[in-house]
Amino acid sequence: MAVKGWIEVSDTYCKGCELCISACPQGVMELDMARLTPKGYHPAHTFKEGCTGCAICAIVCPDAAITVFRETTKAVPVPA
């Protein structure tokens, strides 16, 4: 099963440049055309399931606007 992750995009920093959208390997990001940041940009967001928390969006983000999280995978004890 794929690792589950999620991101938070800061309205303070995001400028809607779309670099994260084209870089996202899962294709789960787009600009949120329903919202504007205080500076007047449509911010990026995930619009569907599938984020793995790979952080590639954060790596290409020129504004350090993205915080990335990933569900912790607990080690399942192997039966003896």
């Binding site: 400028k15 020129p62 504004d63 915080t67």
Partner: peptide
């Protein structure tokens, strides 16, 4: 859960650079 966050060596100020 944290994988990546804005570095602490940055101030809180958004940059003046153009988008992208």
């Amino acid at each position: 859960n944290l994988v990546y966050e804005r570095p602490e060596a940055f101030t809180e100020m958004p940059t003046h650079y153009c988008p992208g």
